[in-house]
Simulated scan of single mutants.
Amino acid sequence: MPKKHIRKPRRRSTAVIGSLAGLALLGFGLYGLADASVAKPPGGWHKVWSDDFSGAAGTLPSSKNWITDTGTSYPGGAANFGTGEVQTYTKDTANLQQDGSGHLKITPLRDAAGKWTSARIETKRSNFEPPAHGKLRIQARVQLPNVTGAAAEGYWPAFWTLGAPFRGNYKNWPDIGEFDVMENAAGQNKVSGTLHCGTDPGGPCNETQGLGDSRACPTTACAGHFHTYTFEWDRSSSPQQLRWYVDGVRYHTVSSDQVDAATWAAATGHGHFILLNVAMGGAFPDPVAGHATPSSTTRPGVPMKVDYVAVYSSRGSASSAPSPGNS
């Protein structure tokens, strides 16, 4: 969720797209399961961090793993987190809680005065990066809010990362890098993956749009169904690559030779931290609706559910698609 500056309407750049149709078909039933434990790493990979949100119903996610953001900005950072989103983030369990069935729920709510609240969390760890000449995989199994059409105006669920140097600075975006593993706007039946880097506006990464692409979710609609979203960061290839997948189907690739070496190093030469949130309104959903959102038709109280978040590492040199299995 490119989060530091107002975005223009998003028109995705052309990307290298690999269609792994056979793998998607193989994963049909597995991706449809209502619940799953943290996915086992494929051969040559090992798990370095995960959370499966197995806490008691009505509890906040583990404070050992997560920081819960509150308010409408970082200290000294851009208002409304730089995107024009209208909600206030809280620690209220009405907005953020584990459900007792192995899921985290982030639920946007509207009060009697029309004010919106929601939730946003980020990992305490900010050192997620591949080993030298290796790879890193950041993955989550997520059910997007089960709302579409006019009732979904303003919904902006996201699973993403920011470069570690952002913490405590809050003014060095997009130079420090942002990887949007999954974004969705207004209940559309497609998800987006984006790299943000360089300078804003414009620059080598076409800010504020970034270098991104989008596609429909395989087999079932994005809204209301669990899908597995994966981002692979590969330092073993030449040129280096960033790759985006949904349910094992690669739909976007950015290579280091698409930007200058200094821009690539500034965005990828350090660790990142992971974020989950549901914003309301702002620079992504507003252009989809064609007007300011959320609106009078927007339905509050529809959660994004997260089954697990996991990070895997590999020292291998060959690229491999994410495993379709979730157990």
Rank of each mutant, 00 (worst) to 15 (best):
H103S: 11
K115S: 14
R137Y: 02
L104Y: 00
R125H: 12
G134D: 01
T59Y: 12
N65A: 14
F28I: 15
G134S: 02
K135L: 06
G27D: 10
G44K: 05
G114T: 00
R110I: 00
G43Q: 07
K105S: 15
P42Q: 10
S62V: 09
V38L: 09
A78T: 06
N65S: 14
P61D: 02
K115V: 09
A112N: 14
T117L: 03
Y89C: 00
S73Q: 08
L104T: 00
G134W: 06
H133K: 11
N80E: 08
E122V: 06
F53H: 02
H103L: 13
G55D: 08
Q97K: 15
P131K: 04
A119F: 00
A57D: 10
I121L: 07
A132D: 09
P131W: 07
S54N: 15
V48I: 15
N95D: 12
E122S: 10
D51F: 01
A113C: 05
A132W: 04
P131C: 04
A94M: 07
H46C: 00
T88M: 04
L96W: 00
A56S: 15
T59N: 11
L136I: 10
Y31I: 07
A132C: 03
P131D: 06
Q139V: 13
P61C: 02
A34C: 03
L33C: 10
S118N: 06
A112T: 14
D35A: 14
S62R: 06
L25W: 15
F53C: 03
G134H: 05
G58Q: 08
L26E: 13
Y89P: 00
G100S: 09
D111M: 08
G27F: 08
S63Y: 07
F28V: 13
G100F: 09
N65L: 09
V38Q: 09
E85V: 02
G77D: 02
G102A: 13
N80C: 04
P131M: 03
G32A: 14
K115A: 15
S37Q: 10
P108A: 00
S50D: 13
P75C: 11
Y89S: 01
Y31R: 14
K135Y: 08
T90M: 06
G27N: 10
K91H: 07
V86Q: 00
T93A: 04
S62A: 11
I138M: 02
V38A: 11
S50I: 05
W45A: 05
I121D: 07
A79Q: 05
S73H: 03
D99Q: 04
W45T: 05
A113V: 02
E129K: 14
A24F: 11
A24Q: 15
T123N: 01
P61E: 02
H46R: 04
A112V: 08
A24P: 11
I138S: 01
